[in-house]
Design a protein around this nucleic acid. Structure first.
Lengths: 351, 351
DNA sequence: GGCATGACCGTAAGCGCTTACATTTCGCCA
DNA sequence: TGGCGAAATGTAAGCGCTTACGGTCATGCC
């Protein structure tokens, strides 16, 4: 009577059902504990047993049930990453590096995208945490207070990437968007440009976009330029919108001699529009981008832009999160240096 | 003795720990079953009790544990998608549509990428299934026999997208890559081209790439052209490789008058190389792509390519999988029609 | 030869949830 | 008023895994 009659829940065709740890154990004539150890801490099992068990695993096509594993181990070996968009290459390279780095630690990456919406991002954070993400990679500092509160309460380690600012005390890895854009603007001004156009991505909920605009203004001030020397158009992320914004700027009078863009995608749209309108770049007007994604090199003319250390951010973030997850010290925020890639789209202003 | 002393595993700070179903039950003075019912089948609970329970849920900030839920319910409401790459936009739009469609059904999408490797893909399939994916979206027909065997054995519903072939009996939604490329080649031949270059992605493990090459050959045969009129270069997926391959083709003598590319990424590389070498496109040599991703429109000259119904494939695949998961009929494979987008990069051969 | 020492392995308790089945409650009709 | 079926709720058995704890040997040392 010590073992009550069990209700058979199992499929009636045991042969076709997913094999379980127990099946493997039975076939290999060991206990479930040993099988589990073979899979998780192989060093604790003798070579002979291990071989036999792994053989059986392969034979039965056994795959551990994730839910059960997470439930028992209270750890999923899954990290989450929430990026604003996956529609273009901006975060692709960094994410790739992140995933690769985590892969070396046996960690799976779950990717979600927030469509640049803090509200949506908050929902994604909750979803990923409920799904057991051990740690999270987030982009930029801007998000709802509830998001941060939730993360703290749940004690989920996270790191902010693609942005670095000495002012924020939370862990981050990235570069100073403001300084980077300031440096680029400086080069532009040094070439003699005095009337600037700026196409920025939406700034609400996007600290990187804001910082880049601020960088432009910083540089202008340093050069003693008045704010009205800058024409600013804010639009959402898409090639087509870059084109529209460029058209708008070209109607201003006097016309800007250079159009700075908050990212390469908008810049690509601007270049396409320039070509459509027969405006020579950079002879009639210069254009610059930001990010240095692949298209920067293949558009005509090729794009002068800010090269961002995508891969190093991804790898670095992975390292930091692994350390945190293991209860170790992540070593503090990291500031990386972006550089400016000079190509054809930037030249001196027309005479 | 019926109940042995329990080992306390629980956190020593109950206040900070995640609340469990049991906590909610205790606070609301009901059984765990009732709480569970409130969350999953509210109709089975009296309005009064339901209100009290949901109140408690909010109060405690309870969030169900995904692993436990999956384990007990044997269903995760999670579908998986494995695409060859996320590095560029090729699958982005389709994936986006897939995710959106599933979202309407309360289903989360897990995305993984196989880097065009069947072996890696097999591992990804196992991972996703182990993670409880209720159904899978796969790209193309080519994969290891073990992958298919595994899927059948585990009885995981799946659908193959981005490819359709009457010959395969497995469920798929997509278009006929071979016929599409044949149609494009026909246009090329109709313009008078007789010496063709073809840059293809690696064909091993990639039925779409093979089908596209076959399509070119079909069209050539229909025109009575000998096979040696085609120069073929196979390379891996990357802009830079497209450039190298183009350079190779340009050294052939006699030189091809048109370079067909297996996809837009390779074509973008080819165009960049042409520009670098001062080869006018399409005056000196024509170039075509395949996929019609965003860059096709912004490169110079803009790219003549095959427009693929990305979004409809994503949505259709989602619908089919939901039906299958619910034990309903998915309605059979779907063949969609790609169309040819004529732009600037294709013209008649030089005189 | 006796005994401490590891290396290896088995036993079994839970992880937090769903759900089959048992039990209670309640409305309603004869 | 008694009885009966439906509705509401409780009870408790697992889901498949990890891991603390304890047992069993062969080994090495005095």
């Amino acid at each position: 009577m010590s073992k009550p009659a069990t209700r058979p829940r199992r499929s009636t065709e045991p042969d076709l059902a997913q094999p379980t740890l127990e099946d493997v154990a039975r076939h290999a004539c060991v206990s479930t504990a040993t099988v589990s150890r073979c899979l998780n801490t192989p060093a604790q099992v003798s070579a002979e047993t291990r071989k036999r068990v792994l053989e059986t695993v392969r034979l039965l096509g056994y795959a551990p049930n994730f839910g059960a594993r997470a439930l028992a181990a209270k750890r999923t070996n899954t990290f989450g990453a929430i990026v604003p968009t996956m529609e273009n290459a901006i975060f692709a390279r960094g994410l790739q590096a992140f995933q690769e780095a985590l892969g070396h630690h046996g960690i799976t990456t779950l990717v979600a995208s927030s469509s640049y919406s803090p509200t949506l991002e908050e929902a994604q954070i909750r979803t990923l945490v409920a799904r057991g993400a051990d740690a999270l990679l987030l982009i930029g500092h801007d998000r709802t207070p509830e998001s941060y509160a939730f993360l703290e309460k749940q004690r989920v380690p996270y790191v902010v990437a693609w942005a670095y600012s000495g002012a924020e005390k939370r862990l981050s890895i990235g570069f100073d968007n403001r300084r980077a854009m300031q440096a680029l603007t400086q080069k532009v001004l040094a070439l003699g440009h005095r009337r600037l156009g700026l196409i920025t991505a939406e700034r609400a909920g996007n600290d990187r976009a804001r910082a880049r605009v601020d960088g432009v203004i910083d540089a202008m001030q340093a050069h003693g330029l008045q704010p009205d020397a800058l024409r600013l158009v804010e639009t959402t992320y898409a090639i087509a919108n870059g084109a529209i914004a460029f058209a708008t700027l070209m109607q201003a009078k006097p016309r800007p001699t250079v159009v700075l863009c908050g990212n390469d995608v908008l810049a690509a749209g601007a270049l396409a529009e320039a070509r459509k309108r027969g405006i020579a770049v950079p002879d009639a007007v210069s254009v610059t981008g930001f990010d240095d994604i692949e298209i920067a090199e293949i558009v005509t003319p090729s794009l002068t832009t800010v090269r961002v250390p995508h891969r190093r951010m991804g790898q670095g973030a992975a390292q930091m999160l692994v350390a945190l997850r293991n209860g170790k010290d992540a070593g503090g925020s990291v500031a990386l240096d972006p550089t400016i890639t000079m190509r054809e789209s930037l030249g001196p202003p027309p005479a």
